[in-house]
Simulated assay, not measured.
Amino acid sequence: NLQYLSMAYVNTFSIKGLQYLAAGKGCRKLSYLDISGCTQVNTDGMKFIAECCPFLNTILLNDLASLKDEAIMQLVNGCRNLRAISLQGTNSLSDHSFQYISQLKKLRKLRIEGRNNLITDTSIKALGRNCLELNHIYLVDCPRLTDLSIKALAPCRQLNYLNVADCVRISDTGVRHVVEGPASSKLKELNLSNCIRISDVTLLRIAQRCTELQRASFCFCEHVTDAGAELMGGLSNLVSIDLSGCFIQDQGLMALGNNSKFRKIDLAECSTISDFGVQVMCQHCRDLLSLDLSHCVLITDNAVKSIAFCCRLLKSLKLGGCSQVKMIFISQISNQQPPKHS
Rank of each mutant, 00 (worst) to 15 (best):
D95H: 05
D95Q: 06
G89W: 02
L60F: 08
L61V: 03
L60D: 02
S86L: 06
R80Q: 15
C79D: 04
G78L: 11
N81I: 05
S94D: 02
L87Y: 04
L82R: 07
R83N: 14
S86I: 01
Q88T: 14
V76K: 03
D69T: 10
L61A: 02
M73S: 12
L60T: 04
N91F: 02
N57L: 00
I59G: 00
N81H: 15
A65Y: 01
L93K: 06
L75S: 11
A71W: 03
T58C: 00
N81W: 13
R80A: 13
N91A: 07
N77A: 13
D95M: 03
L60H: 08
A71M: 04
V76Q: 06
K68G: 07
L93G: 07
L75Y: 10
D69A: 09
A71C: 11
I59V: 12
G78D: 08
I85Q: 06
D63M: 04
V76D: 08
E70L: 11
I85F: 04
L82W: 01
G89R: 04
D63Q: 07
D95K: 04
R83C: 15
D63G: 01
G89C: 09
N81S: 14
E70Q: 12
I72L: 12
I59E: 01
N77C: 13
H96W: 02
T90A: 06
I59C: 00
L67C: 04
A84C: 14
E70H: 08
S92P: 05
L93P: 03
E70I: 12
S66E: 12
K68R: 13
M73Q: 14
C79N: 07
I72Q: 03
T90G: 06
L93I: 08
A65P: 00
I59S: 01
C79A: 10
L64E: 01
Q74E: 15
N91I: 12
V76Y: 02
N62E: 04
M73W: 00
S66W: 00
A84D: 14
A84V: 09
S86R: 13
L64N: 02
T90R: 09
E70C: 08
L75R: 07
L64S: 02
K68V: 10
D63F: 02
N77M: 12
K68M: 08
S66K: 13
D69S: 09
N77H: 12
A65H: 10
K68P: 05
I59K: 00
N62Y: 00
